[in-house]
Nucleic acid binder design. Sequence first.
DNA 1: TCTGGGGTCCTAGGACCC
DNA 2: TCTGGGGTCCTAGGACCC
Length: 423
Amino acid sequence: MPPIFALVDCNNFYVSCERVFQPALRGKPVVVLSNNDGCVIARSEEAKALGIPMGLPFFQMREQFPKPPIEIYSSNYALYGDMSARVMAILKQYAPEVEVYSIDEAFLNLAGCGGGDLQSYGHLIRQGVEQGTGIPLSIGIGPTKTLAKLANRLAKRSPEAHGVVNLSDDADQDVLQSVAVKDIWGIGRSYSRRLQRHGIETAWQLRQADERWIRQQMGVVGVRIVWELRGISCLPLQLHPPPKKTLTVSRSFGRPITTLDEMRQAVATYTTRAAEKLRRHQLAASTLTVFLHTNPFKPNEPQYGSAIKMTLPVSTSDTAELIAYAMVGTAHIYLGGYRYKKAGVLLTGLVPEQQIQMNLFDARDRERAKTLMQTIDQVNARLGSGALQYAVAGFHPGWQMRRSRMSPRYTTNWDELVVVRAG
DNA sequence: TCTGGGGTCCTAGGACCC
DNA sequence: TCTGGGGTCCTAGGACCC
């Protein structure tokens, strides 16, 4: 049986998560800010209606929208991650095959589901998730992932769809003509401009486009999109996520960093987070890159940025060892006299923990280091992240990111649990 | 004062080998 | 007198995604 793809997408996910725990936010314009309270990354329908664009820097929003009482939240990833897991768990009750595509999206294979009435089945899924979590969502159904995505857009766009659009039988000319190329999954700014320059403006026109020309302009990626629009599936459901290839931890600073000492603290902190992620995925890294740069939005300030990539003698997930290399790299590329905005650590060459290649000249006691890491991870899991940390990471540093409008971690922190009172 | 973070895939070009 | 060519691996950069 050929698959029938459904794309389930939570509506304004981060805003919806905040609303679950604060019902008074319903009907009001609400935005959620990126890390460091930098820019707008989620908007309620009311906020969209005010004309607040995605990605608007927060300080510009306050200039441009001084009047309306917009509810503003710093992003609370502990909360969103937990709500996401609950949504995904419910979706798995409705379809045997689920690909968790992002924090707020999943592809489902609905072949054989719902007794053939996929429209009704879609509404059933919506009700189930809404009842179980309070999160509203939209569902698009189609014979390919690209058409399911497109159907999902239509479901969000047209109120009469009530959140479900089914294109599994036919994505006809009228439907495809109503979708601009820039709104097709996989077509970004650059490709959509190039296509429009050649008179291709709608999904329907792209579907009819000359394959050789598309191949030449957009490579195999473009050809795949055209085929998928024609209903020929090229992108299968990924039931088992492929292993991670790279892992990054990077942050903008709450205020500029101007000393090597603080830069060392920041890089050591990010390296600690990266090593924790490695161990959680039971991976080890074979290279470590440190990068740092000034604020590119301040052209009047002197600009500098650099990166250094180091190959480790033995793949490792040992925080102390990774920090040692990161500190060497930091000292190497850090130059005084600049106001630094951001730094980060990139780990590549990730290998499963069990497959680490030993090095003949390796003097390190790796068994002992591993036991220590397990102990630290256990303590931090029980007492909260950062209960045990390396001194080089600094205590209460002033450069940490701003998140001044954070909601409580309602679902994942004992101290901040929601209290339900009877009567 | 204030502009996010973390990924993937594809392609072209260089290094190297035979 | 003659100045190859194909394969593989790696990397950097571009494009895209949420």
